[in-house]
């Protein structure tokens, strides 16, 4: 059987790459894609733990399922916001939307 560490290392790498994307990218859509990578990493962890460590092997599955659902909802909503931002500012680049700064 494949050792669990393999999956965990894969998920850690995937998570780090996703986080790099969130920090480095300018386009809001690309940032969203990077967030999807991070969510996938988390889901892999859940499933791996469920399969390897949980005698019932079900709670982790459900969590992964919910992570996927929430990710889908998040993408739908966030893309709506991106479109709105694009209409208002003619750009989808997050560093041009800096009205948070006084």
């Amino acid at each position: 059987m494949i050792p669990i560490e393999n999956f965990l290392i894969l998920s850690a790498l995937l998570f780090a790459i996703g986080f790099y994307g969130v920090m480095a990218r300018r386009s809001a859509i690309l940032i969203l894609m990077s967030v999807e990578l991070m969510l996938a990493a988390v889901a892999i962890n859940f499933i791996a733990f469920a399969t390897y460590l949980d005698a019932d092997a079900f709670s982790g599955l459900v969590f992964a399922l919910f992570v996927i659902t929430v990710a889908a909802a998040e993408v739908g909503l966030a893309l709506g916001i991106v479109l709105r931002l694009y209409r208002e500012r003619r750009t989808a680049n997050v560093d041009e939307a800096d009205s948070l700064k006084w």
């Binding site: 059987m1 669990i4 560490e5 290392i9 469920a50 390897y52 460590l53 005698a55 092997a57």
Partner: peptide, 12 residues
């Protein structure tokens, strides 16, 4: 993750 002890696989 490498540091932790993960115990034995026990899944049904």
């Amino acid at each position: 993750m490498l540091d932790a002890q993960w115990g034995n696989p026990a899944a049904t």
